[in-house]
Design a protein around this nucleic acid. Structure first.
Length: 832
DNA sequence: GACCTGCTGCGGTTTG
């Protein structure tokens, strides 16, 4: 085949589609920008060939510039640096690139540099870098920790950042910002040629133009956004329980609808079943096999605690349709472009619009195909969320990603990184660091404090030699100790996780990992489930759990200590609006264009309306309940559990000023509960006062234990900043040990250096991330403009049910007891 | 620092 590269690019496009690659609708626009050396951001739904578009742009540019010798094996040096957040993606991308290169008859080679790269390959790369290098943010920083790193970038044309929407908003994104600032400026200083362009590749997010600005900040260029103006067609179908009356009002597993999932799996070639937690995914896998034994060997399990090798096999087998279905957690959210499936099922709330869309996008994977996703509610009310999601998708109400600001821990790690390779000159690096979006507001005195910390251990730690890492030699900041250098390299990165023990079969082969605290509760002989296998604990040795296969029917499903996804602001808002549609319960029965989910729930809404009230989006509903457990106050802001956590504490504090009461608090994504042994004095006369914006800041400080929260946040900060080392050669520190030393440091800083930047950062992270202070404040403002409706229902209402049920968990009842009790409560309600 | 449903992501070089 003959390829005409300039001026018409159509030939490549048609060649691509002949090869089965989808042409990105606006790829020519992207190519033209790249050819003319502009930087920017490419955005389109998944499966539109964004990756190819950027890659080909750089290829075309190269060929245009070297029309006579792009086929010769001259040593071109590194041309394209491809940053991707996932190791697993590197191989697929690399293979596709090689295919294109071969077709074009080019001499380029493609290399991968990450934790999986072998020593031999590293050595080869050291001698000669490939033209294209695919790398993770962490490995890129390790690259900057190598002597003479700047040399490698001297011919670099383009830095591409794949999945930028995933990286931005995390500290990994900050690492990318810093690395770009370094590469671009080292280039600028030493070379006469133009510094490399920067191109981001992003799925749709609410603040796309911010995403571009964050990425391009260090090169001080406006840049362009190349956006495919196309709407991906998405069909959402809820899996409806036959009789809503008999479907649980509370719960998280949703296994009761398993009989409706089996035909969906049977009817499609490949299916992904997204489950919210690792523990529940293990149970779903088991139950699927119990209900449909013929699935044995045709379905598999995939989550973050399962051994890598096993996971890779599962991904491959799904890709080649050897497997019919995979039960997974967020572990299969990414890695989209090259491994589509036919059907996607989401079990339980996806907590946000974009996560739901992303998962839907794994099916029907081409620009014009329809993506279909089934939504399976784990309790009745979750069907409202399904209706809300549909509306949100129609309106393209996609969440924004907020870029992180002034992460001093990442900055300290980065400066140590530079200090172990070539060393750095503060004046030069300060300007560079300030050119990034993250550190643009960095103050001179903060910078100096950081430098002081690096060289002297700062105010609080100056007695300890361990914290004097950097020496100043002729104005050059450098780490000369090989021990410190090695330790630092081992700890580069911003992902801090709990100590996990590896689980290994007695007969050989690893199964996965399990948390220290979980396994410490088990005795040898106990049985648990991991990766879908029943295992008997034999012994624990050297951070490894030795197990053998068990035939025991009674096993414990581990619970891992994961993050707590909160409902996003967008989905919360949509949820409140959806209640508008049903606020007049009579409307539901009559209306034909009502969402099927809402029609299905009509009996539940009628009950809610009859017993209490259905809140509209300009109302806040408060319910008083009385039970043998005491007096319950239920509030429904629909703001997600994190906001509710702070809001409930503030409310408890404010009520406490009226009467000295103590509460026990429970919450979910829809609302929260204050439980008390005495009547709770909240009524029409004081309700709006209790939700006032006045004195909010002070009341937050008085009610929320920010110090305790900051202490926990500080652990990660201390690890990232290198104050505590997680991994020393041949040793993994125990989680408890880590927590203890972090806590100690927190105390030292609080006492001797209370204005310390890392300490301040810990509090800032609590306010920004944990309490979501901006959102909390917005919620108080919204409530201030709403009508507060207070009801005193005679019985528990459908809305209060899941929250009170979660509250029961608090009180040390065994899970069996709770299930029985909920069933009894619900049966009682339905009877009369 | 715990368990109350609770995700994902990464990771050694230099010099002898």
């Amino acid at each position: 085949m003959k390829l005409y590269l300039t001026p018409g690019y159509q030939c490549i496009a048609s060649w691509l589609s002949a090869k089965g690659h989808h042409a990105f609708p606006f790829q020519e626009e992207a190519w033209q920008h790249i050819v003319s050396s502009k930087s920017g951001l490419v955005n389109a739904p998944t499966g539109c060939g964004k990756t190819f578009s950027v890659f080909l742009g750089s290829v075309i540019r190269f060929i245009n510039q070297h029309p006579t010798d792009y086929k010769s094996k001259s040593k071109n040096g590194l041309q394209l640096l491809w940053i991707t957040p996932l190791r697993a993606l590197a191989k697929d991308i690399g293979r596709a690139m090689e295919e294109v290169i071969e077709e074009l008859g080019m001499s380029w080679t493609v290399g991968i540099r990450n934790g999986d790269t072998t020593q031999a390959e590293r050595a080869r790369q050291k001698k000669q870098l490939p033209e294209v290098l695919i790398i993770t943010p962490e490995s890129l920083h390790l690259f900057l920790a190598q002597k003479g790193y700047a040399d490698a970038f001297k011919n670099l044309q383009l830095i591409a950042v794949d999945e930028w929407h995933e990286l931005m908003g995390s500290k990994r994104g900050v690492q990318v910002e810093l690395a770009i600032s370094r590469i671009v400026n080292s280039h600028r200083k030493s070379m006469a040629t133009k510094p490399p362009m920067i191109w981001g590749i992003s799925a749709t997010i609410g603040n796309l133009s911010d995403a571009k600005d964050v990425l391009l900040s260090a090169i001080r260029e406006e840049g362009v956004i190349v956006k495919a103006q196309m709407k991906k067609q998405i069909v959402v179908e809820s899996v409806l329980p036959d009789e809503i009356e008999n479907y649980p009002w509370a719960g998280h597993l949703g296994i009761k609808l398993i009989h409706k999932v089996i035909p969906i799996i049977e009817q499609s070639k490949t299916t992904l079943i997204f489950i919210n937690t690792r523990g529940m995914s293990e149970r779903w896998y088991q139950e699927l096999l119990n209900h449909a034994p013929e699935f044995a060997g045709a379905i598999a399990l995939h989550h973050g605690s399962i051994e890598q090798e096993l996971r890779l096999w599962v991904e491959e087998a799904l890709h080649t349709a050897k497997l019919k279905a995979v039960v997974c957690t967020a572990s299969l959210d990414l890695g989209v472009d090259f491994r589509p499936v036919e059907t996607v099922i989401q079990v339980g709330s996806p907590k946000g619009v974009s996560r739901f869309l992303q998962r839907a996008g794994r099916s029907g994977h081409s620009p014009d195909a329809v993506s279909k996703i089934y939504f399976l509610p784990t309790h009745s009310l979750e069907l409202v969320e399904a209706a809300a999601l549909k509306n949100a998708i129609d309106e393209e109400l996609i969440e924004s990603k907020e870029p992180m600001l002034l992460c001093f821990d990442v900055l300290i790690q980065y400066l140590n990184t530079l200090a172990i390779s070539d060393g750095f000159k503060p004046e030069e690096i300060f300007a560079e660091v300030k050119s990034t979006y993250c550190y643009r507001d960095l103050l001179q005195e903060e910078w100096e404090e950081v430098l002081k910390f690096l060289t002297e251990g700062g105010k609080a730690l100056q007695q300890y030699d361990d914290y004097k890492k950097i020496e100043v030699i002729d104005g050059l900041y450098k780490i000369t100790s090989r021990r410190i250098a090695m330790q630092h390299r081992l700890n580069i990165g911003t992902i801090v996780s709990d100590a996990m023990l590896k689980v290994r079969m007695q007969s050989g082969g690893y199964v996965g990992v399990i948390e220290e605290y979980f396994i410490s509760r088990l005795e040898p002989g106990d049985c648990f489930t991991l990766a879908g296998r029943n295992l008997e604990l034999l012994q624990i040795k050297d951070m490894t759990v030795l197990v053998k296969k068990s035939t025991s029917k009674k096993t414990i499903v581990p619970s891992w200590n994961g993050g707590r996804m909160s409902l996003t602001a967008n989905l919360g808002r949509k949820l409140r609006e959806t209640f508008n549609d049903v606020a007049d319960a009579g409307k539901i029965m009559g209306s034909k264009n009502q969402a099927p989910e809402l029609v299905h729930l009509s009996s539940l809404f009628q009950l809610q309306q009859q017993l209490s009230h259905i809140p509209k989006d300009n109302e806040l509903l408060i319910e008083h309940h009385e039970s043998k457990d005491g007096y319950h106050l239920l509030v429904y802001p629909f703001e997600g559990r994190q906001v509710h956590e702070a809001m409930s504490a503030i409310l408890a504090y404010r009520i406490g000023k009226i009467a000295p009461l103590t509460f026990s608090i429970a919450m979910n994504d829809y609302g929260f509960e204050l439980l008390c042994d005495q009547p709770i004095p909240v009524d029409d006369t004081n309700a709006s006062e209790l939700f006032t914006l006045n004195d909010l800041t002070a009341d937050i400080q008085r009610s929320v234990n920010a110090t305790e929260m900051a202490r926990r946040k500080f652990r990660d900060i201390a690890v990232i900043g290198g104050l505590i080392t997680q991994t020393a050669p041949g040793e993994q520190k125990k989680a408890r040990h880590l927590q203890a030393s972090a806590s100690l440091l927190f105390n030292v800083f609080s006492e001797y250096d209370s204005k310390n930047v890392l300490l301040r950062q810990a509090y800032q992270e609590v306010f920004d991330q944990q309490m979501e202070e901006v959102r909390l404040r917005n919620a108080f403002t919204r409530i201030g403009n709403s009508t507060i409706v207070i009801t005193v229902p005679q019985k528990f209402t459908p809305l209060c049910f899941p929250i009170i049920a979660d509250g029961l968990n608090r009180n040390n009842l065994s899970s069996e007891n709770i299930e029985d009790r909920i069933r009894r409560m619900q049966a009682q309600l339905m009877k009369d």
